[in-house]
């Protein structure tokens, strides 16, 4: 209730202009930071908003390839396979490894299973190893899946211990189910596909690229 009657009109106009500019800047910042009007079209956010209770975060098939010099540290892990055989990352050194995160009840995992097996058979002769990481199931369920789809490469059961998922989490993490990660000969992440692999040929191309890299 304090009147500002003392305002000189000239100065007032100038101040109004300055003020308007400040206001413009601040309000732009506000609009940006708030993401006005809920126009969240981001796929990840949309999954949440759909409320489908499908209970997994799906990927959109997006592919990340990392050039040799940008790759992170080698991934170190140790875990047990479905049949109880212990494995460690050192056993895979010198080989290109495809790691697939999956579980039996996940529809896209089922959809891509034949493509994975096909690629595995095609590349195993070139020394490429495939390793499944089952993130939800117990042994019996995982084995039934393998026999249903004729999967011949082994899987780690990770639901209880989570060691594989923890080892792979970080910058290029398995951020969807399924996620397929290609490790280079040094055990570093070279490529990642989030969600169902679009086609066997896509995975083949990714593997071939890494295979062609000179071993260090």
């Amino acid at each position: 209730m304090f009147a500002r009657n003392d305002r000189d009109a000239q100065a007032g106009r100038l101040r109004a202009r300055v003020r308007a500019r400040v206001v413009l800047a601040v309000s732009t910042a506000l609009l940006l930071s708030l993401g006005l009007a809920g126009c969240t079209n981001d796929a990840l956010a949309q999954q949440y908003r759909d409320g489908s209770s499908k209970n997994y975060v799906a990927g959109d098939g997006s592919i990340t390839e990392i050039t040799v010099k940008n790759r992170g540290k080698p991934i170190r892990f140790s875990a047990d396979l479905e049949d109880g055989t212990p494995i460690t990352s050192s056993a895979y050194t010198g080989r290109v490894v495809v790691v697939n995160f999956w579980y039996a009840g996940c529809p896209p995992c089922r959809a891509e299973a034949p493509d994975l097996e096909k690629t595995y058979t095609a590349f195993s002769s070139q020394g490429v190893r495939f390793l499944g990481v089952n993130v939800r199931d117990q042994a019996a369920t995982a084995r039934s899946f393998a026999s249903e789809f004729g999967i011949t490469y082994p899987s780690v059961l990770d639901v209880d211990r989570g060691t594989m998922q923890l080892a792979f989490s970080g910058v290029v993490a398995p951020n969807a189910v399924p996620t397929t990660i290609v490790l280079d000969r040094n055990g570093r992440v070279a490529a990642r596909v989030l969600g169902k692999i679009p086609d066997a040929s896509v995975l083949e191309a990714l593997i071939t690229t890494v295979l062609k890299e000179p071993s260090q």
Binding site: A45, G162, S169
Partner: peptide, 17 residues
């Protein structure tokens, strides 16, 4: 069982913009 703080491990996930 174990949960990991990666997207693959979540049942549902609500990200900021």
């Amino acid at each position: 069982q174990t949960m990991i703080n990666t997207l693959a491990a979540y049942d549902s996930f609500n990200p900021g913009r």
